[in-house]
Design a protein around this nucleic acid. Structure first.
Lengths: 118, 118
DNA sequence: GAAAGTGGTTTCCTCTAAGAAACTACCTTG
DNA sequence: CAAGGTAGTTTCTTAGAGGAAACCACTTTC
């Protein structure tokens, strides 16, 4: 008798796993949380603002990550017709729903650090 | 006057960001959540069990990810002196503290799917 | 003694994430 | 007209993540 999957071979688990994969794929990469976190704190920021706020990121990565986040409707990009034109990035209502998740991530990270050193 | 970071240039944000980076680094990779999720459901599983449960993973990746998780004390590995020897992987108390986080990830993923299709 | 199960390691390969640096284009201020 | 600000794009390169397949050692069952 060949053994087969028993735990993960049920619809509830499958949907759960899929949901987790979805979330992680949307938030993948080194910078997504940094960008989202910064936009949640300081609402409406320009490209150069973000470049300054997020230490270490380069313009290429920032540009790409912003596009990803915009595609997934987590942030908005609005071009103001000023001179010179300026662009403002902001978190969307949808993006704001990530707050509890980001909160959990931060909380766990802090607790982990304490448990290792403390 | 040169502009500088204002939002992220304060200790609270720095610690937050660091904590998030820590968490993400510990849980990085394609399989960590799948492994943890599976071990939370079915407590105490062998290597081959996990290989069967986690669809798509190969033995090399499983081996590596299990080592990572064990190093970070999120799972335990105990060798039973049976014949043939068997190895049991289980979630630790520490690893179990990830449950709320995993819960949030799944919740958000499900909600996201609904908001896109619904 | 061959097949199948235990728990992995090793080798080789590919693809992508990420970063550095240069460049575009347009505008304003000194 | 040079310097510096706006918002990015392009090119080149490298490190690492991930996967397929073969292999090892040991044991039990058919």
């Amino acid at each position: 008798m060949k053994k087969e999957s028993v735990i993960n071979d049920n619809p509830v688990c499958q949907i759960r796993m899929q949901a987790i994969s979805d979330t992680m794929s949307i938030l993948s990469g080194k910078w997504k949380f940094h960008i989202l976190g910064t936009l949640i704190e300081g609402n409406k920021l320009g490209f150069m603002d973000l470049l300054r706020e997020i230490e270490g990121i380069g313009s290429k990565m920032l540009s790409k990550e912003l596009q990803d986040l915009e595609c997934n409707h987590l942030i908005s990009r609005t071009v103001k017709d000023t001179k010179p034109i300026t662009v403002k990035y902001a978190i969307t209502k949808h993006g704001a729903t990530l707050s509890p998740l980001i909160e959990e991530l931060a909380k766990w990270g802090v607790a982990y650090r304490k448990s290792v050193h403390g």
